[in-house]
Design a binder for these strands. Structure first.
Lengths: 247, 247
DNA sequence: AGGGTACTTTGACCGAAATCAAATGGAAAC
DNA sequence: GTTTCCATTTGATTTCGGTCAAAGTACCCT
């Protein structure tokens, strides 16, 4: 996941690269240059943006909506390996071929740069590489945190971990602290949750029902979730209650 | 894992950062500067180099031996989240606290830089950041590949995947192609393999016995492995035979 | 050589999650 | 309004890997 790589977009537009270029160290020309080569693309829910093995000729970041990175085995088993939220970066400079599918989980808008000029920019503008390094290190931490979830947690803990990540992301946007109940809409189907957690969709459904029965969460409809006690949820996830979990 | 981030060390010493600084783009002063602040540390097998939560005041790379990155839950469940081989980088600029344990799996020598001067170098020497970005992106790919292993593969496939990674690393060092049998010593105990694969050590042992019985591998002693047919092993791992697997 | 220790193998049994199957619910389409 | 389609829930059964327990093996150390 990439959730730590988030920015305040309120005053600098929607692109994390540009944001940092404006606000931190860079001169105006660099901004202009990036401005000149950026463009927007929209995708519908379910649409595959990039197929594994295809050439990748752009990089970019999510403006709105959710995308997922997915790996698929020949026999159809699939594992989601990343969840891309607004401001998260997609693509990698110096790599021609996409190593996994990128799929729009919801309707999606991306801000893109053609790869070639972006790579040239990276050489001439050190801060872009440094910024990208920070973001990539955050993603690496998140991926490793998720390896613990996949490798060692029970189905119930996995569900609680996922809910806690989504809740936290929402909490950081909507509320200041994490006291009081947290309310959000699940942006994923049961199947997508299963693909993320390395479970079947039936197990996901059963564990959500169990958490509901045990009053760890409340559901209105299938997607609208209330977390009355975030600390309780994190206990269920097997995490330290004190916020050690990297989102 | 970090196996893709490997270098040819034959003519430039043992440190990947320095290697690139010398051979690719940089001036002599930069090399001198890095030379001046580097130092070596040795560790015995089993020794914990860095504890999760501790302050990290250095970065470095593995010179010889194997280290592992490990996460542990309060109840003792542990998951290895990375395997560090010679030339792999440890630590992250811009991060004070270690997010996981770093443990010497075998006797180990590391080449270290104090973090502060290294970070200063990163600002003044763009190529270091760019090099580090490439390495980190490779590690991220490897971590995501491993998420598929942890989330969706069977115990047998997991073992085959691990053997195939180790075999391939060794093959790349000892032989040019991957035709003919591959021979190597397992650098991990059954328990360490289990921690890497999200299994118990008993299951690891049983699956190794099964692969032996089915003649996918041959064992002499507990650790010395022969792979008569690498393609067969990769089929068992559930990977494309054509080398799609990121090491 | 003997004895200790740590690593590994093997067996018996159990349980959590997968699989197979059917029912329910909810929203869009007719 | 009701039909259709999908997402979801729930149930019955199976299976893979975990757990508990007991040997077996190799290496080290006097």
């Amino acid at each position: 996941m990439t959730l730590k790589a988030q920015f305040d977009h309120t005053n600098c537009g929607e692109c994390p690269i540009r944001h940092r270029a404006v606000c931190a160290h860079c001169e105006r020309d660099e901004l202009e240059e990036l401005e000149g080569i950026k463009y927007y693309r929209s995708f519908e829910a379910g649409q595959t943006i990039i197929w594994s093995g295809d050439p990748m000729n752009f990089v970019g970041s999510v403006v709105s909506g959710i995308a997922s990175l997915t790996q698929t085995m020949e026999d159809g088993r699939t594992q989601m390996v990343g969840l891309l939220l607004p401001s998260d970066f997609v693509g990698r400079p110096g790599r021609e071929i996409a190593p996994y599918d990128v799929v729009a989980t919801t309707d999606l808008v991306m801000c893109c740069f053609r790869k070639k000029p972006f790579e040239e920019m990276m050489v001439t503008t050190p801060h872009i590489a440094q910024r990208l390094l920070q973001m990539t290190l955050d993603e690496l931490d998140a991926a490793r945190e998720w390896m613990l979830v996949l490798g060692r947690k029970t189905a119930r803990e996995k569900i609680a971990s996922l809910l806690s990540i989504i809740a936290r992301r929402d909490a950081s946007i909507h509320q200041s602290g994490m006291a009081g109940p947290i309310v959000f809409d699940l942006p994923l189907t049961r199947e997508a949750m299963a693909d993320y957690l390395g479970l079947t969709l039936e197990t996901v459904s059963r564990q959500i029902s169990a958490l509901k029965k045990d009053q760890v969460i409340t559901l209105e409809g299938k997607r609208h979730v209330t977390i009355p006690d975030m600390g309780r949820l994190m206990e269920e996830a097997g995490d330290d209650t004190d916020g050690g979990f990297l989102v």
